[in-house]
């Protein structure tokens, strides 16, 4: 174990983009994550499934340091997240260094969290201009292209409050993409949407997957997971119960908890 851990500290550049080992996290003595392991290869799409409270969202937030982990390690692109490992002793990174690590990771939230005082295009330009120091002209051109890509090229000057939920979420995806991230995290991107708006957002995410973006998606959309994911991970009560190809996990679950969850989900869909 120690030898393996030592080997992991000096990670060579591999196909593996995200490498999480034994991640634990507690909120006020309530252990939400009880030793999560997860590997995501470049270009892979991983869907995290599970009942609410299973720790999916918390784990996602740990990857880009919105939550600090209590134990375990998370590497993204070979870099240990949140800490500097000097000969086995961990030193907490400064806020600035953590901010730099986050630039490589895009995140899309359940509640969109667009900046309401900025127009759609200003939302997309904000990080490139303020964080990367990109020129306004150049950034505006790129932002326009990104909004075109998510089908909102004609709504650039609209404020978030003037957009539908589906449109807001698509702007939020464009905003995350503007930083040219290596990894995209989606936290239940369609859970706050009216049913008829879910499709347009999933279509954008699906397109991203086809273009080879590495993504971790927390979702309750089973058909999306089945079609798009390379791996689905079923979590419950802070542990990974089962992981594998979608056809195997969703079609032929091996664990009782997965079966119960899927049955309940199906019965909800069959009898709305």
């Amino acid at each position: 174990m120690t030898a393996a851990a030592a080997a992991e500290t000096a990670q060579p550049r591999t196909e593996r983009l995200v490498h999480a080992v034994n991640v634990t996290k507690s909120f006020h003595h309530n252990e939400v994550l009880k030793g999560i392991d997860l590997d995501v290869d470049r270009g892979q799409v991983v869907c995290l499934l599970g009942p609410s409270g299973s720790g999916k969202t918390t784990f996602l937030r740990c990857i880009n340091q919105l939550e600090t982990i209590d134990g375990g390690r998370i590497w993204v692109d070979g870099r240990l997240m949140g800490y500097d490992d000097r000969d086995g002793r961990l030193y907490r990174l400064k806020n600035k260094q953590i901010a730099a690590q986050r630039r490589e990771i895009g995140m899309v939230f359940q509640r969109f969290n667009l900046f309401p005082h900025m127009t759609a295009i200003e939302n997309v330009m904000e990080a490139p201009v303020q964080v990367k120091g990109e020129g306004k002209k150049e950034s505006r051109v790129r932002a326009q292209a990104l909004l075109d890509r998510v089908g909102l090229g004609d709504r650039c000057t609209a404020y978030p409050a003037q957009l539908s939920g589906g449109q807001q979420q698509r702007v939020a995806i464009a905003r995350a993409l503007a930083m040219q991230p290596k990894l995209m995290l989606f936290d239940e991107p369609t859970s706050a949407l009216d049913p008829e708006l879910v499709g347009e957002v999933l279509a954008v995410i699906r397109e991203l997957a086809d273009e080879g973006m590495t993504m971790i998606v927390v979702t309750h959309e089973m058909s999306f997971a089945r079609d798009v994911a390379d791996t689905v991970v079923f979590m419950d009560a802070g542990v990974v119960v089962e992981a594998g190809r979608p056809r195997e996990v969703l079609g032929n679950p091996q664990h009782q908890r997965t079966k119960t969850f899927l049955t309940r989900l199906h019965s909800e869909h069959d009898h709305p």
């Binding site: 919105l66 600035k96 901010a99 939230f109 900046f115 995350a176 930083m179």
Partner: peptide, 27 residues
């Protein structure tokens, strides 16, 4: 100001000063 605003800005890699000046204070 909703906590999600600061989180979204942090997730984009903004420093805490920028988060305050560009996102939280204007709102």
């Amino acid at each position: 100001v909703d906590k999600g605003q600061a989180e979204a800005a942090e997730a984009l890699g903004m420093s805490s000063g920028k988060v305050m000046r560009r996102v939280v204070l204007p709102q």
